[in-house]
């Protein structure tokens, strides 16, 4: 099977967020593989181990994105592709990303594409479905189980807590939800091997695209932090008194009941 994983680097979830010059300040921030994309990498490796084939991880980013690709290779992916848009694009949106990926996949034989169901930074969840539509491929989002037998995928999809069991023929694009698997940690031998695995670098030019072809449809005009919240009141006294006071405050001061 030809398995592809769409991967994005994101801020480490531990990072506090600050804004400078109307943008998120990423100086000094630690980056990780988007946690939902990690489920995609893990699932791709498990499916390859069960059915044979190769796993290729693809990211759009800058030179620093190599780090997350190497991590995916250390987990067990076979190939990595970095589409480096650092020189060509100042800003893009989900249309931009899907358009670039569409071009990348144009000449590829694909059985399965996996992605995270959402990235924890921009959190639109658009790119997977957008790409599938451009490739005229069915897609299933937020999957928590994937069984492939004779070219047919049986999928369990999380629907806000309920489950749907869905059947679809390959090729298909799926986006991964928490609960699908437990992503493995990288091992030292894995990390050593990853250094020698192929990592292809492409720019827009290599995909016969220029910045006008992928011009964003939406623009961000401001970024701001929510108002900081003041620490509130710690109630005092006997527990029973505190509970009575709390109920009174919720009803009469906060007026939320």
């Amino acid at each position: 099977m030809n398995i592809y994983v769409l991967l994005k680097k994101t801020f480490d979830t531990e990072e506090a967020i600050s804004v400078s010059g109307g943008k998120i300040d990423d100086s000094g921030a630690e980056f990780i593989i988007n946690p939902y994309d990690e489920y995609a990498v893990e699932e791709a490796i498990q499916q390859r181990d069960a059915h044979g084939g190769t796993v290729t991880v693809v990211t759009i980013g800058d030179q620093d994105s190599e780090k997350q690709l190497r991590t995916a290779l250390a987990m067990g992916a076979d190939h990595a592709v970095l589409i480096n848009t650092d020189d060509d694009l100042d800003e893009g949106d989900q249309f931009t990303t899907a358009k670039i990926l569409e071009k990348f996949f144009e000449d590829k034989e694909v059985d399965l594409i996996l992605a995270g169901n959402v990235a924890i930074d921009e959190a639109s969840g658009q790119v997977g479905p957008r790409l599938a539509e451009r490739l005229d491929m069915p897609f299933i989002t937020t999957i928590v189980k994937l069984d492939i037998v004779d070219g047919t995928a049986t999928i369990e999809k999380d629907v806000e807590g309920d489950l749907e069991r869905i059947e679809v023929s390959l090729p298909v694009l799926v986006t991964c939800q928490q609960g699908l698997n437990e992503p493995r940690y990288t091992s030292l031998p894995g990390i050593m091997k990853a250094k020698k695995k192929p990592l292809e670098q492409l720019e827009l030019d290599d995909l016969d695209l220029d910045e006008n072809d992928v011009a964003a449809k939406t623009a961000t005009i401001a970024v701001f932090l929510p108002p900081t919240k003041q620490a509130g009141r710690i109630l005092a006294g006997e527990t029973e008194v505190q509970v009575k006071e709390l109920v009174d405050l919720l009803r009469n001061e906060a007026k939320v009941m």
């Binding site: 801020f11 506090a16 967020i17 804004v19 998120i24 924890i120 930074d121 921009e122 959190a123 011009a215 964003a216 449809k217 939406t218 623009a219 961000t220 005009i221 401001a222 970024v223 701001f224 932090l225 929510p226």
Partner: peptide, 14 residues
């Protein structure tokens, strides 16, 4: 919201 509500952005159609 972006970054799960750690920040917000304002967006327009181009």
């Amino acid at each position: 919201p972006i970054y799960s509500g750690k920040a917000f952005e304002k967006k327009v159609m181009k």
